[in-house]
Design a protein around this nucleic acid. Structure first.
Length: 678
DNA sequence: CTGTTGAAATTTTTT
DNA sequence: ATTTCAACAG
């Protein structure tokens, strides 16, 4: 008599569609899973079912969008599998496409000519390298402005990920850069050469080389032999290159399961394409499609409103979602006076919900762009409300953190031109030109930091130069533990922070933080790799899992909120120009993506949903001190029936709007007022 | 050659 | 508000 459950007992918790998906056989399977329909539960049960049928865990590949999602899914699968009395899931291959690519390339890379140890550049490093090549090629010429490094990188990345020709990419996505086509070609050639020479891969290369592995006859077979089952989460947000990789793993799609929702595709800017999910049945003719439509997340009034919002999109796979829940409050549409007023209103509601027993961590404020929350952050700090922000600038993207890591990376690889060109100009008397020469010396000699020992620095750098070289040579051949190494870098670097940056105190604290977490990593190389593939989103993330009773509000970009849910959700800055972003209204496809983004934001809410938009925006330092905004175009008049409307007063109280007596959105009112300051 | 200053341009979402 | 570039002084 055992205490273990049977797989049927576990599956009994699923509805019939979920169960059908979880127990589907070997042929390709597409699960179309609307928001809140238990997609993760289904996927996790499918893993358990596969293992229960005797599939070897080490032959299962689970591809997710973030490392966090992979960890969460494997954790839940582990629980199920343990209940079945099976060994567990720790041998399952789980992670992002990029992390898995990394593992495969370490193992098989040499079969396609990859150097045995290569380093990986994050987006910022790649841009910096692009910049190095750009100045080598003298593209910063005078007659007209060449695209910025970030733009160059975006164009390059689009070509690689969407597998589109430069000309096509420029015409359709970067029309203002078409005149630079020839120079961009040269730049990209130079960039690729440079990466090859330095033994460096960027994010896109990880996918590109994985795909190359699969096309190579020998390596391809070796990789294909590894897996019996491949499960892919968030399939609507994969790009053409990623779809090609799946196809390369098995062209018949044997053992392939993909899960996604075309209504939640929000990464087209990163070359993701809904076509992957829409064309799945075409690419895999014997595919089965299972659709999940029962929503377990949101109350009925919220679900109705969100169905209406996405209902306005012209083309779509999924049908409307339904729920067994009937009770619940209608979502609120709040017209605020201005940004400050919006913050006041939200804080007041947040505190009310907390009083009523909804912990801060069950509430979230969502916004389109990272900077939309700046004022709110200040107000939250004043009100002593702890919060945790996701998305936007990451910890490792802060200049001082990048500086410190550059020391470690240069020690790891003296030919790392990006790190060198970052560090050397920190020293007095050394600018871009000398930095280039110095790095050139290291690259050609290939003999560690030897060439730097005899170099005669300019007077300004005379005293610091020998310390600098000693630090690096010491780090390069040290067997000290990592925290000790970071400590030495910190001792050397801290005085430079004070001369280079403002806000010195918090920066120095970050460096201490970095020293403390260094002990977590097995080796220096490991630490650098982990930080590029899975950058922590904030210092709090670095500090480790928060204490249990430590309650904090979540602030997040809508993109980073994907796949998550909260009891109360506040969507702020739902004004045209922000949602949709002015930057993304060039063509109908972009606008549709913004609509889906808005839909993703709304569908995060379980019980309470607030959509706020300030009426007025202030522009500091401009003669016309403010401008007026319109409600987002994704909530046209007919949809207002599904919301309770209100305006706010100065202390964050709301006043219900009786549409019969006063309609703020009446075209005539708007037309009359617009003329006053137009 | 470096470092400072000012003017001009650009301004999102992220593995 | 931040990034990039030109001009100019040491």
């Amino acid at each position: 008599m055992s205490d273990f459950a049977t797989i049927d007992e576990l599956l009994a918790g699923l509805n019939s569609q979920q169960r059908e998906a979880a127990t589907h056989g070997e042929s390709p399977l597409l699960i179309v899973a609307g928001a809140g329909t238990g997609k993760t539960a289904t996927l996790v049960h499918r893993v358990a079912w596969l293992l229960a049928r005797g599939v070897d865990p080490s032959r299962v590949l689970l591809l997710t969008f973030t490392r966090r999602a992979a960890a969460e899914m494997l954790r839940r699968a582990e629980t199920l599998v343990r209940r079945l009395g099976l060994p567990g899931t720790n041998r399952v291959w789980g992670g992002t496409y990029h992390a898995i690519a990394m593992r495969l390339l370490h193992r098989f890379g040499k079969m396609i000519g990859l150097p045995p140890q290569f380093t990986v550049h994050d987006r910022g490093d790649s841009e910096d390298l692009m910049n190095v090549v750009r100045s080598d090629l003298n593209l910063a010429k005078t007659d007209k402005r060449f695209p910025k490094k970030g733009t160059c990188m975006a164009i390059y990345s689009r070509c690689v990920n969407a597998r589109e020709k430069l000309e096509h990419v420029l015409r359709h996505h970067f029309p203002w850069c078409t005149e630079w086509q020839e120079d961009l070609k040269k730049l990209f050639d130079g960039y690729t050469d440079r990466k090859e020479a330095d033994g460096v891969l960027d994010y896109d290369d990880l996918l590109l080389y994985w795909s190359a592995l699969l096309t190579d006859p020998k390596a391809g077979d070796a990789v294909r032999k590894l897996f019996d089952c491949v499960l892919v989460d968030e399939y609507q947000d994969t790009n053409t290159l990623q779809a090609e990789i799946l196809y390369g793993l098995s062209s018949e799609g044997k053992g392939l399961t993909v899960v996604g929702d075309d209504a939640q595709s929000i990464y087209a800017f990163r070359a993701a394409t809904v076509r992957n999910i829409l064309d799945f049945p075409k690419h895999y003719p014997n595919a089965t499609i299972v659709t999940l439509e029962q929503n377990y997340r949101s109350s009925q009034p919220i679900l109705q409103a969100t169905n209406e919002v996405i209902g306005l999109t012209p083309e779509r796979f999924t049908k409307n979602l339904w729920s067994q829940r009937t009770e619940g409050e209608r979502p609120k549409l709040v017209n605020c006076e201005d940004d400050t007023d919006q913050a006041t209103y939200i804080i007041r509601r947040i505190l009310e919900h907390r009083e009523a027993g909804v912990a801060l961590r069950r509430q979230a404020v969502l916004f389109r762009a990272s900077h939309h929350s700046i004022l709110l952050e200040a107000e939250l700090a004043r009100a002593n409300i702890p919060f945790h922000k996701y998305g936007g600038l990451k910890f490792v993207e802060a200049a001082h953190v990048k500086d410190l890591l550059a020391f470690l990376r240069l020690a790891e690889n003296p030919r790392d031109v990006v790190s060198g060109s970052r560090l050397l100009p920190l020293l007095p008397g050394i600018g871009p030109t000398r930095a280039r020469q110095l790095m050139e010396m290291l690259v050609t000699s290939g003999n560690g930091f030897e060439p730097w020992v005899g170099w005669r620095p300019p007077a300004a750098a005379a005293s610091i130069w020998s310390d600098f070289v000693r630090l690096l040579t010491g780090l390069a051949r040290t067997d000290e533990d990592l925290p000790a190494q970071v400590n030495r870098v910190r001792k050397f670097y801290a005085p430079l922070v004070e001369t280079k940056y403002d806000q010195v105190e918090p920066r120095l604290r970050d460096l201490e933080q970095l020293e403390m977490i260094a002990s977590r990593y097995g080796s220096r190389a490991r630490m650098l790799l982990e930080l590029t593939l899975d950058p922590p989103s904030s210092t709090q993330d670095l500090a480790g899992p928060p204490v249990l009773d430590d309650d904090y509000l979540v602030l997040s970009t809508i993109h980073s909120a994907k796949g998550l849910e909260w009891d109360a959700v506040y969507v702020i800055h739902a004004a045209d120009g922000n949602i949709p972003s002015d930057m993304a209204t060039r063509n109908p496809e972009e606008i549709e993506e913004e609509r889906r983004l808005f839909y993703v934001a709304l569908t995060r809410a379980k019980n309470w949903l607030y959509v706020c938009y300030p009426l007025r925006y202030y522009w500091p330092g401009r003669s016309d001190r403010h401008s007026y905004s319109q409600r987002t175009r994704f909530l046209p008049a007919p949809l207002l029936d599904w919301f309770d409307q209100c305006v706010t007063d100065r202390i964050g109280e709301d006043i219900s709007l009786d549409e019969a007596t006063f309609d703020l959105d009446s075209p005539s009112v708007r037309r009359r007022t617009k003329d006053l300051w137009g």
